[in-house]
Amino acid sequence: MNNSAKIAELRHSLARHASGAAGQTAVPLGHAAADRVLGGGLKAGALHEVFAEDWGGGGFALLLAARLTTRLTTRLATRLASARTDRPAPLFWVRGDYAAREYGALDPMGLAALGVDPRGLVMVRAPRPADALAAAGDILACPHVGALLLEMEANPKVLDLTASRRLALAAETSGAGLVLLREGARETPSAAHTRWRARAAPSHPDDDDWGRPRFAVELVRHRSGGVGKFLMEWKSEHGCFDAADHGAVAAAPFHRQADAQGRRAV
């Protein structure tokens, strides 16, 4: 019995090594300019901070986390062995008790409409910020978690530089994507690999109807590369981002291109 367990574990680590070194997987966002600045894609196994500047920011963080779950595709066994499908690894969302009241509860119907399968989502409600951090530690200890979205309101005392280092280290060890969503928070020093400011962006001025969800995001800090501003669109049917540049008029000011390569924003 122990031998077969060992073999299963070995097979698993082989599978992980085949798809790139553990914790070093980069997941392309789909937005060409952003991927270039990020060096191929958003690094799984690292801490990414998203500061929401308005109601669109939370959506961006969730979609970022959903995108990171594609780093692992597991075949979740079905009751019918024949009906197996590849599916992204589970997404865990940890939020405080009052977050649902303040920022709205998740509507899985809307999530499914965005192309993220609600079956892969586990929602964890934590009574206090300290519990949220402890739960995050538990979740990141499991190597089969796709990504974790940790939602933190304001600047709780427990979320200091040490806690953020701990989170970054745990994400690095497990290889899971970790997105820390900060709502109504001041920017303080942290161990994050990237830091984003995100808000909703209006549809193209020439359009009468609205189209795909759009985000004006700013990569303000990046430990291994440049920064920049991007205008992104979420493509539900492909489950990835794309440049929102049809018409190209509105997009131009947001593309301060990656000539900032090598400059580190603090």
């Binding site: 998740l106 509507d107 809307g110 965005l114």
Partner: peptide
């Protein structure tokens, strides 16, 4: 595209 239902209620 675009989603008919909101992400948060």
């Amino acid at each position: 595209d675009p989603p008919p239902r909101p992400l948060r209620l």
